[in-house]
Design a protein around this nucleic acid. Structure first.
Lengths: 125, 125
DNA sequence: TATACTGTATATATAATATATACACAGTAG
DNA sequence: CTACTGTGTATATATTATATATACAGTATA
């Protein structure tokens, strides 16, 4: 499991970890039944506290993406990937809307927004 | 000066106020030399603390967008709007990049991202 | 000089983030 | 059965970000 955290990223550590694992589930790198790294192991690898990992896992558990077996470990839940993907999609739409709104709100023209988007799309995809 | 804050908005109050005023400067609603509302007046209007307004103004001051005259008030600085606009533009590009990256990172196809963008653009512009 | 505006400084409360450390459950080697 | 080593859990605490109340100081003017 390659999970990385960054101090440059303004998001809290637990959120970065949460996101990272959720992404792996969505991309099929982690399948239902697969074991997640133990919170101790991951804490050691990332050189952060067990509690912070616990919190990330807690969020995943509350979204029913993983299940926790005390004394055994944490495992990817038998969840419906397409449903999760659909939720992620509307999350992305909302974030996209925020960016576009902000652009409009700072006097950026529609043409400029389109230009920025196309440039970014080329560079990232 | 119509500035609104929202508890739904996850950003801190001081940041919402900062953004709101910066936007007005960028859109030319506030011009160099114009007086900003006094921190007391604005605090009263928004029903929040003077200190929170102060903090928003402090950020604006540190970016040299406004100047503060103790005992007199705060005023829009004699700043180069085009320069500020250019900075805002790269900020927007970066946020756009984050959204696109996240989309890619959750398995969303390029086509889908384009579709979302176009939809949002139609709705917001 | 009184007063009525400005912004400022100090001390404090609350919540979010991250931690250390001690505890409890599961499986297994002896 | 016991001891051990792995798992997750609970409690108490530190640090930082956000927001506040209240008392202080500068500026203008009636």
């Amino acid at each position: 499991m390659f999970i990385s955290i960054s101090n440059i990223d303004p998001r809290p550590l637990y959120e970065q970890i949460y996101e990272s694992i959720k992404s792996k589930i969505l991309k099929g790198e982690l399948k239902p039944g697969d074991a997640l790294p133990s919170i101790r192991q991951l804490a050691q690898d990332l050189k952060i506290s067990v509690i912070t990992i616990k919190r990330a896992y807690l969020e995943l558990e509350q979204e029913k993406l993983i299940i926790t077996r005390p004394g055994k470990g944490c495992f990817v839940a038998d969840c419906d990937i397409s449903e999760i993907a659909s939720l992620s999609l509307s999350e992305i739409e909302q974030q996209m809307r925020e960016v576009v709104r902000k652009a409009k709100n700072t006097g950026v023209s529609r043409k400029s927004v389109e230009h920025i988007f196309n440039k970014v799309l080329e560079e990232e995809y």
